[in-house]
Amino acid sequence: GSAVKRNTHHIHAVGKGDPQIFAGKAGEARFKVGDPVLVRELPALFYTRTPEYVRGAVGEIAALAYESPAPEDETWDRQDAKPEWFYVVKFDMATLWDDYTGPDNDVLRTEIPERWLVPAT
């Protein structure tokens, strides 16, 4: 498999791991822990990993996850795509589901790349 061209970037990650291989390549993170963010309604034709259920919802940055190319680029093997910051974003269940029946402090956390997020006001 090491002679297969499309495996090249995996071979580069030997000894480091993925996403560690992209560390330091995304530049400065736009958001910090605690920032309120709104998930954009980007077109998701053919592929995305940002769940439909968080689009348009307001959450809070719970952690900076790592740097990596976005799945929308990586899935098509676009090796020149610039890595970006990924964030663990925390949402109140009640803001995601109109009819949420559990208590107010139930939350959902999911990871979202920076392109999908804008500051919430």
Binding site: D18, P19, R49, T50, P51, Y53, A65, Y66, S68, P71, F86, M93, L96, W97, Y100, T101, G102, P103, N105, D106, V107, L108, R109, T110, E111, I112, P113
Partner: peptide, 28 residues
């Protein structure tokens, strides 16, 4: 969407004082 209902089907009923935190592992 219905974490408490699903957990109760597994026999795990949590009191309201305990927040449920669902982690969707949708990236790396």
């Amino acid at each position: 969407r219905w974490p408490r209902q699903v957990l109760s089907e597994f026999g795990l009923v949590l009191p309201e004082g305990v927040a449920v935190r669902v982690q969707d592992s949708n990236q790396k």
